[in-house]
Design a protein around this nucleic acid. Structure first.
Lengths: 330, 330
DNA sequence: CACTGGCACTCACCCCACGCGAGTGCCAAG
DNA sequence: CTTGGCACTCGCGTGGGGTGAGTGCCAGTG
C-alpha cells in the first residue's frame, strides 16, 4: 500500500468526519498540504475506490470512506489522540463525588457520553476479583425466599426463589452456614465451600439448601453481569437525518442480549472497534461500536455513526475505562 | 357549549389522530354521519376555532385540534374504551412468569409500551404498605459501610456511607439492634423504633450509629422512589418527522428530576393526562403524558405525541396500573 | 333562525424544466 | 509518475404554472 495513498485516505476520513459531506480532490489538496496536484490525488482516489476503501454516493460527487476504509484508518493510522488536560480533569472531578456503585456507574455513563457526544453503555462490574461480603436470606412468603448477595465491591445482587416450604429457624440456620462457607472469599473459593456445604446439610434444610445453593452458585459463576446503564441518548439525534434510521438503533439498545454480546467481545484494557457491517447485528450495521474492558471483567463503550471521530472516541473510551477501573479498585 | 359542536370536535380529534392530517369539513360529514351539510360544519368549525379548540396550519387547509381542544375532548368525551379480551389476556400472561421485582417492572414497562405503542415509564414501588424485612450492614473499607434495606415487597435498597471508624463487632452489635428496632414493621413504625434507638446507643457505637440511623430514616421516609424503568424508546420514531424534534424528549427522559415530577403529580388509581403546554417542562411541550398511580404510592405512565389516541392509551395505562398493583400486593 | 347550496378565493403541494457548479475521468505533455 | 487541460456527468437549488382541497361568505329556503 502506497504511502501517499494512505495519506489521502486519512485526509478523506478526517475531512468527511468533520464535514459530513463527500470530499473532492481539490478540497483535499487545499486543506492538507499533500504536495501534489488534484489530478494526482484523483488517480490515487480511483485506486482506493478500486480497492474498496472509498466510494462515491453518485457520479460527479466527492468520495466517502467505506467501512473497509474506516477499518484501515483505525488499524494503520490510529495514533490515539492523548486527552487534553481539561478532559483529564473532567474525568477526575466527575467521579470524585460518587456515593454508591449505582451512582458511580451513572456518572461514568454520563461522562463517557458527554466526552464522545455519543450514546454510552456501561456494564455493571463482575464478581471476580471481589470477595463475597455477605449472603442474606429473607422470606417473602411461606414459599418464596429472597436471596441477596453482597460483594466487597459494593455490588448487591438479588434473586427470588420458589422453595418447597419454609420456617424461620431453618432459614436462619442456613444463612449462618452459607456465610461461614462463603463470606470473605473470592467467588471461586466460595463456590468450592458451598459445594462442600451441599453434601453436609442437615436433613431438614436439605431441599431448601439445595435450591438456594444452586442459585447462589449460578450468581457467583456468571462471568459477566447482565445489568448495564445507558446514557447519552439525545446525542443520537446529532447524526440521524431521518427518524426511521434511528429506529433499529433504539431497538438494539433495548435488547439486553444484543448489548451483552456487543460489549462482551471486548477484552480487558484493549479498545476494540467494530465498524458498520463488522457488527454481528443487522440493526447496528450503520453504526460503530467502540468498547473497552475495565475493572476485572466488565465492559464499557459507545455506539455512534460509522462516520465518527475514531481517534478521540477511542482515547476517551480508553481513558474512562482506565480511570473507572482504578477508581473501583479502591 | 353546543352539543353538535362537541360532536364535531370529537370527530376532528379522532380523524386527526388516526390520519395525522388536517381534516376538512367534507371529509367529516362523509365519515361521521353528522346529519348536516359541510357548510353547517364549517360554521361550527369557525366557532370552535374562535374559541381556541382547533386551528388551521395554513389558510386553505383543514383543521387540527389545539391542546385546549384535546383537553376538552379528554374531559368531556372520554368514555374510556374497555380493553379487548385479547389485551386483558396479554397483560395477565405477560407478568405471570416474573421472578423478582426488577423482572416484574421490566415486563411491566415493556407491556405498557407495547400496548400503547409509546414510550413507557414505570417507577419503582415505594416502601409504604410494605414492612421492613431486614437491615444489613457490610463494611466496605475501614471507613465505609454499605447499608442495605430489604422490604417485604422484595425491594432491596442500598446506600454507602462514610463513617468515622469501624470495627467488626460494633458493626455486628449495631446490626442486631437495628433489626430488633425495625424488622417486621412498617416504615412509620420502624422510624419510631429507630429514633428511640438513637437515644439509647452505647457510647462506642454512637457516632457510627447516628450516621447509619440517619440514612436509614431517610431511606424509610422518602415517599417516592427515585428509581424507574423506561421502555419503548423505538416507538419515538413512529411520530417524529425530524430527528431534531426528538432531542428534547430524549433529554427529558434522561433527566431523573423531570421524570419524577412528571410522574409524581399523578395520584393513586386515577389516570392523569397532561397535554402539551400543560406540561411543566418546555422539553415536553409537544408531548402528552398519561400517568396513573399504582400499588401504594408509585406511578407509571406513557409519554407520546399530543396527537395520541387518548381513550385507548388511558385504558391501557389504567388496566396495567391496576393489574400490576394487584400483582405486587401478593 | 338555523341550515344549505353555490361560488369565488387562497395557498400548500406537486411537477418539471433549467442552469449552476462541484467533481470526475481521460488524455497528452512534461 | 505527475500535471494541466478539458469535456462530461449529474445532484441540487430555483422558479413558475397547474391542481385541488378547503375555506369564508352570501343569498336562499324550510
Amino acid at each position: 500500500m502506497d504511502d501517499r495513498k494512505l495519506q489521502v485516505l486519512r485526509a478523506i476520513v478526517t475531512d468527511y468526519v468533520s464535514s459530513q459531506e463527500p470530499v473532492g480532490s481539490k478540497a483535499l489538496v487545499d486543506k492538507h498540504d499533500l504536495g501534489v496536484s488534484p489530478a494526482t490525488v484523483r488517480n490515487d482516489m480511483a485506486a482506493l475506490e478500486e480497492e474498496g476503501y472509498i466510494t462515491q454516493p453518485h457520479t460527479s460527487a466527492g468520495r466517502i470512506p467505506t467501512d473497509k476504509g474506516y477499518r484501515l484508518f483505525v488499524d494503520r493510522m490510529g495514533q490515539v489522540k492523548p486527552l487534553s488536560a481539561a478532559e483529564q480533569r473532567a474525568i477526575q472531578t466527575f467521579l470524585s463525588g460518587a456515593l454508591d456503585l449505582d451512582d458511580i456507574l451513572l456518572r461514568t455513563v454520563r461522562l463517557l457520553a458527554q466526552a464522545t457526544q455519543q450514546v454510552a453503555i456501561v456494564q455493571y462490574p463482575t464478581l471476580s476479583h471481589s470477595t463475597v461480603r455477605h449472603v442474606e436470606l429473607v422470606s417473602l412468603s411461606t414459599t418464596r425466599v429472597l436471596l441477596v448477595l453482597i460483594t466487597s465491591s459494593g455490588r448487591v445482587e438479588q434473586r427470588s426463589l420458589e422453595v418447597p416450604e419454609l420456617d424461620e429457624t431453618t432459614l436462619g440456620d442456613l444463612r449462618t452456614h452459607l456465610n461461614a462457607a462463603a463470606a470473605g472469599r473470592t467467588p471461586e473459593e466460595a463456590a468450592v465451600g458451598l459445594t462442600g456445604l451441599l453434601t453436609s446439610l442437615a436433613p431438614q434444610t436439605l431441599t431448601l439448601g439445595q435450591s438456594v445453593i444452586t442459585s447462589l452458585l449460578e450468581m457467583l459463576g456468571s462471568e459477566t453481569s447482565s445489568r448495564m446503564v445507558i446514557g447519552g441518548m439525545p446525542y443520537l439525534t446529532r447524526y440521524a437525518t431521518d427518524p426511521g434510521s434511528m429506529k433499529p438503533v433504539l431497538e438494539a439498545l433495548e435488547e439486553q442480549v444484543v448489548l451483552l454480546t456487543l460489549l462482551g467481545e471486548a477484552s480487558a484494557d484493549v479498545v476494540t472497534v467494530r465498524i458498520g457491517q463488522e457488527n454481528p447485528f443487522k440493526e447496528l450495521q450503520t453504526t460503530s461500536v467502540v468498547a473497552s474492558g475495565y475493572g476485572s471483567r466488565a465492559t464499557l463503550g459507545v455506539v455512534g455513526p460509522t462516520r465518527m471521530d475514531y481517534p478521540s472516541t477511542m482515547a476517551s473510551v480508553r481513558a474512562v475505562a482506565r480511570y473507572v477501573g482504578r477508581f473501583l479498585a479502591q
